[in-house]
Design a protein around this nucleic acid. Structure first.
Length: 554
DNA sequence: TTCTCGAGCGCC
DNA sequence: AAAGGGCGCTCGAGAA
């Protein structure tokens, strides 16, 4: 059963069965009505999950399945070579009617914990005022179903898991990652010294800056690449940039100071006290414990490859240094599941390379690679990454040649994708997500920089076929896992997701069942995507009180 | 003063 | 070792 939903922006709305003879139902309490109808397990149809689902979550209503027309429209447009065209409900409807297509609404950038959660979401459908929004939704949905039916079955699955991902993303944003402000503060203080007044350098950074000045014989702001560049020239060690790996090659006492400064300044500016103030919502726990939540604002499908992006807060770039602050509430635990070596396993599965698949049947793929190519594990890994990323020079060259000899089919798969890209063509993920052609391709490759740009785009499409398929593996896993979780108390469940790993926050007594659900989801994901492939996608599962100690070996 | 851009580096 | 893919975020510098 499919039920279309439109909110009126005041807590009520309209509902209608889309695949039955159901009449339009007007309800004053939409969350409640939706929650009741959820018992029949429908697939909810709406314009944008991020516009409607958070309000349902705030009302305590969780839903199983949906069809997000904006996300689906974007997938279909991409498939038609129309990346970047507006995909909102209003845009899709306007195209159906030959009307001017409105721009997509601009989502307000992350505002942190100070932002008031809107009581009611504004209408961001971009439908013209006065349009029958439910009828428009029905039209767009029917059109999308028709277009999907004409495509390979993978696209249907892709649309379903993209939509499921949107549900999961909203739930993670709602529940939040348990984050202990006191632990974060302790970590910062240990390496930076006590918190300074706003706008000032922490003591350790101030001291490093002073010592850098002494080492070069003049005052220099280490935060300014231009000043550092001048300072290096001044002391007789000119460098082309101030990147860490460039500075590392210079033998001068100022270098270790600069490198240390960079590292700590990064921590301070990106994930220091200001970040903590802005992004971690603090609440009082039992016994005066300072508990907190970091609410990631995921952008599903925000990357062309299908990876997610985030808006504000940098949820996908939380540095390892502060992960100790991610700590389960008393009596609860974190369950972390990490897909190791996902991308080479994906390549083994999609390319059908028997030798690589045999290696990918093992827990440590790289060790098997090394045995096969006759090198050590570390070099086998570099060779594999070079194959997937398009690196050709340096130490990678001989390793790449070894890969090509041992895994010709896998290499041919990514080489073919690279050739397509260099010719200005598109490539597709396993389920059918399509790569974009850069704006102004013809002129760009005709210009003086043309050859370089061809090669760059070839590296992009080479990587796309792997990265985009890895992203959909993760989407299927997420979708599968959230449907398999045992009943859990409010606020428990999946709380974090980063490309190839997922973290759950659950009461300790539920951990064992959750771990079993993860194992089932892993098996289901492999089968749904790749059938009876010998390739395995092992998830390393750890149950721990804090995220840092749930990190597997690197 | 405000905006935009590149440099640089965090994550996968 | 540095002709390696994808991002987001912060800062300084220069433009407006």
């Amino acid at each position: 059963m499919r039920i279309g939903v439109v909110a009126d922006g005041e807590g009520g709305g309209w509902m209608q069965e889309f695949d039955g003879p159901g009449p339009v139902r007007r309800v004053d309490d939409l969350a409640r009505a939706v929650g009741e109808a959820e018992r029949d397990g429908p697939r909810w149809v709406w314009g944008a999950t991020e516009d409607v689902y958070p309000a349902f979550l705030r009302a305590g209503v969780r839903l199983g399945r949906c069809h997000d027309t904006a996300l689906t429209e974007a997938l279909l447009l991409g498939r038609e070579g129309r990346h970047g065209e507006p995909s909102s409900l209003g845009a899709a409807w306007a195209r159906l009617h030959g009307l001017p297509v409105p721009e997509d609404p601009v989502h307000p950038l992350g505002k942190g914990v100070l932002a008031q959660p809107a009581l009611f979401e504004a209408d961001r459908s971009t439908l013209p005022p006065g349009t029958d929004r439910l009828a428009a939704l029905a039209e767009v949905h029917a059109d999308q179903e028709r277009r999907l039916a004409a495509l390979p079955a993978g696209m249907r699955l892709l649309a379903a898991v993209e939509s499921a991902g949107a549900l999961a993303a909203a739930e993670m944003g709602h529940d939040g990652l348990p984050w202990r402000p006191d632990v974060h503060d302790r970590i910062l203080t240990e390496v930076l010294g006590p918190r300074p007044p706003a706008g000032q350098r922490p003591p350790v950074l101030a001291e490093l800056a002073a010592r850098i000045g002494e080492a070069v014989g003049r005052e220099v702001n280490p935060d300014s690449p231009a000043q550092v560049l001048r300072a290096m020239a001044w002391i007789g060690h000119p460098v082309e940039s101030t990147r860490a790996w460039v500075l590392e090659r210079v033998d001068h006492p100022v270098v270790p100071l600069l490198l240390r400064y960079k590292e700590l300044a990064r921590l301070h500016s990106a994930n220091g006290w200001a970040w903590l103030d802005t992004w971690v919502e603090e609440r009082e726990g039992p016994g005066g414990l300072r508990l907190g939540r970091f609410h990631p604002d995921y952008v599903v499908g925000g990357v062309v490859s299908g990876r997610w992006a985030t808006r504000g807060g940098g949820a996908l770039q939380i540095p390892k240094a502060v992960r100790g602050a991610v700590r389960a509430d008393p009596g609860w635990v974190l369950v972390r599941a990490d897909a190791g070596q996902l991308e080479p396993r994906v390549l083994a599965a999609v390319s059908g390379d028997a030798a690589l698949a045999a290696a990918a049947a093992e827990d440590d793929l790289y060790a098997r690679l090394a045995a096969r190519t006759g090198g050590d594990r570390e070099r086998a890994k570099i060779g594999m990454l070079a194959a997937m990323y398009g690196q050709t020079g340096g130490v990678a060259a001989p390793l790449l040649a070894a890969m090509r000899r041992s895994f010709p089919r896998a290499l041919e798969y990514v080489d073919a994708a690279a050739r397509r890209g260099e010719e200005g063509g598109t490539v597709r993920s396993w389920l059918g997500r399509t790569s974009p052609v850069p704006q102004g391709w013809g002129a760009a490759v005709a210009g003086p920089d043309g050859e370089r740009r061809r090669r760059a785009h070839g590296r992009f499409t080479r990587n796309f076929v792997v990265q985009a398929t890895a992203a959909e593996w993760a989407l299927v896993l997420l979708a599968s896992l959230r449907r398999r979780l045992p009943p859990l108390p409010e606020g428990a469940g999946i709380v974090f997701f980063v490309h190839d790993e997922v973290v759950l926050h659950v009461p300790r007594e539920d951990a064992a069942r959750v771990v079993r659900a993860v194992a089932e989801a892993e098996e289901h994901t492999r089968t749904v995507l790749f059938g009876d492939t010998p390739v395995r996608f092992p998830l390393a599962v750890a149950v721990a009180r804090d995220y840092a100690s749930a990190q597997g070996p690197a």
